[in-house]
Amino acid sequence: MKLPTPLIELEKLRVDFGGSGGRRVRAVRDVDLTIYQGETLGLVGESGCGKSTLGRATVRVTEPTGGTIRYLGADITTLRGAHFRQTRAELQMVFQDPFGSLNPRRTVADIVAEPLLRARRTPRPEARRIVDDLLDQVGLGREAGTRRPHEFSGGQRQRIGIARALAPAPTFVVADEPVSALDVSIQAQVINLLADLIRERGLTMLFISHDLGVVRHIADRIAVMYLGEIIEIASRDDFFAGPAHPYGEALLSSVPTLSRQPRRERIELTGDLPDPAAPPAGCTFHTRCRYAVDRCRTEAPALTEVAAGRQVRCHFPLLPVKGPA
């Protein structure tokens, strides 16, 4: 392995939402995270834990409340105007809600071409060619370019979003559930396409997904989030060999599998679901953790390195007995 170069560095990144009825949600709570050039970091976690918000803030689709974002060493947290326009073209996002993020009045070709024309200032004929090629590559076919988003199925819309994000040849893409609406065969095609781009163009990706099978196939490292915080970071193989955080353990045990026999040992998460506007004291997972003891209810664990390249936020990390020396 080459010595990894950081592409994106998040430092104490924070996003607060002032919600209805005095409900202030700290969606992203002081996240420190480094994403290295050419890697795919898989981001998983409970629904509502802040994955999309973290992804959006990283490319400044949502403005962070605090902290810093560095891109190739330069602070881009408050960059504006023409400087930011250039950077914007390099940092792209595939949105989780394909329909909500596609302008219903424009044709698919216009939607996909937009970041090329606006941020990259690509001449129209060349943009046209790039768009046609991308529509073919994502399996929609170039003819789809003349139609409008509402005429497409959920999975087809999702591919429009992927084509749009890839159009300006970005260096970094936040892909928020990019294949969740695709049947497994088209999903395999799109994942293989992304894998090719990663290899050929050195694309770096933050890949958000609930599908652990997909994450296992595309990600080099895995980050797990819970209530606005990163609670585990591990290499792909380490994570799938056995998560070190009790939440990760429950997550992996709940993956529905294609087997004739109904599921064996699933760790059911019981206990109170924490309200993101009022996170529990101590370890935020203690209300549902099957290993919790008194210390967990009062003292918040820090994200701690427990093995090479592996960090966990738990007082009692679950580690293999014969761990690396």
Binding site: G139, L140, G141, E143, A144, Q156, V184, S185, I186, Q187, A188, Q189, I191, N192, A195, D211, L212, G213, V214, R216, H217, R236, D237, F240, L252, V255, T257, L258
Partner: peptide
């Protein structure tokens, strides 16, 4: 084509070649 969490990790997922009828 189902990506699995168990078994050996494959480099490339088997996909059905070609595009669906649109």
């Amino acid at each position: 084509s189902v990506p699995r969490v168990d078994g050996p990790a494959v480099a490339r997922l088997p996909a059905i070649a070609g595009n669906p009828l649109t």
